[in-house]
């Protein structure tokens, strides 16, 4: 589904964010990428929808080499890739349902979206996705009336409404408290399994990674230093990825 072939990326300020990365992610996998901040986790993700372009190597998504795509094809590809942001990135003054419908924009003609005319089927889809994450009773509430955890779950519904093949979640729970973090991660894992989506999540909390990942990719200084199934992972593995003992603040804590 997603393949990195000898990918290196050097930013214009000389920082080597990725060094010869080779990974292959299969359809339907729930992959968590761990590593300290600055390890290259976000860069790896932004390569996938070409918000940044690698200086060397190829990124292949769903059979397409994305560095070669033209602008119009790139937009088509981006509709296939759903993104969940750390700060939710909802339009605060808009209702929850309208925010979720933003996920449909890539599938709606410009004219119809400008006058706010969406097919009933799309509205049904959006409402149904809100139901799936249990927030449908807030559909007509303004997004800024919701708590952080609720807003992040709305952004999950938005991504689902996009009907993507891939979900990228960059530190989705970094701004949330422990119980809410668990709920968001549970919802995310459940819906991506139900829809058979390939999901990549950046996390720096190792207990969350252990609990929800199918597979863990560890990064340090732009290199992939670990790649394995969750069964192979112990706390020892994380100490190897981080290159030092694990600190208590690198765990998010229990759901309760």
């Amino acid at each position: 589904m997603i393949e990195f072939k000898n990918v290196s990326l050097r930013y214009s300020n000389g920082v080597e964010a990725l060094k010869n990365v080779n990974i292959k992610i299969n359809k339907g996998e729930f992959v968590v990428i761990v590593g300290m901040s600055g390890a290259g986790k976000s860069t790896l993700m932004t390569c996938i929808n070409r918000m940044v372009v690698p200086t060397e190597g190829e990124v292949i998504v769903d059979g397409q080499t994305i560095s070669k795509l033209k602008e119009s094809k790139l937009r088509a590809l981006r509709t296939q890739i759903g993104i969940i942001f750390q700060d939710y990135n909802l339009v605060k003054r808009m209702s929850v349902l309208r925010n979720v419908m933003v996920g449909r924009l890539g599938h709606t003609s410009t004219f119809n979206s400008l006058i706010g005319r969406f097919p009933q089927a799309d509205l049904q889809l959006a409402m149904n996705n809100l139901k799936r994450i249990g927030i449908d009773e807030k559909a007509y509430v303004r997004a800024d009336q919701l708590s952080g955890g609720q807003q992040q779950r709305v952004s999950i519904a938005r991504v689902l409404t996009q009907q993507p093949k891939v979900i990228l979640a960059d530190e989705p729970v970094a701004s949330l408290d422990p119980p809410t973090s668990h709920q968001v991660m549970r919802d995310l894992k459940r819906v991506s399994k139900e829809d058979g989506l390939t999901t990549l999540v950046n996390l720096h909390f190792i207990d969350l990674a252990m609990e929800y990942a199918d597979r863990i990719i560890g990064m340090r200084d732009g290199e992939v230093v670990f790649d394995g199934h969750i069964d192979e992972v112990t706390e020892q593995t994380f100490e190897e990825i981080y290159g030092r003992p694990i600190r208590e603040d690198e765990k998010r804590g229990d759901a309760s």
């Binding site: 509709t79 993104i83 990135n89 890539g106 410009t110 979206s113």
Partner: peptide, 21 residues
């Protein structure tokens, strides 16, 4: 707030849609 704009662009929205939503 430019973050929602970033989100709409990342989901494949074009410039008129970015302005509208």
């Amino acid at each position: 707030d430019e973050r929602p704009i970033q989100a709409i662009k990342a989901m494949g929205g074009n410039t008129p849609q970015v302005i509208r939503y």
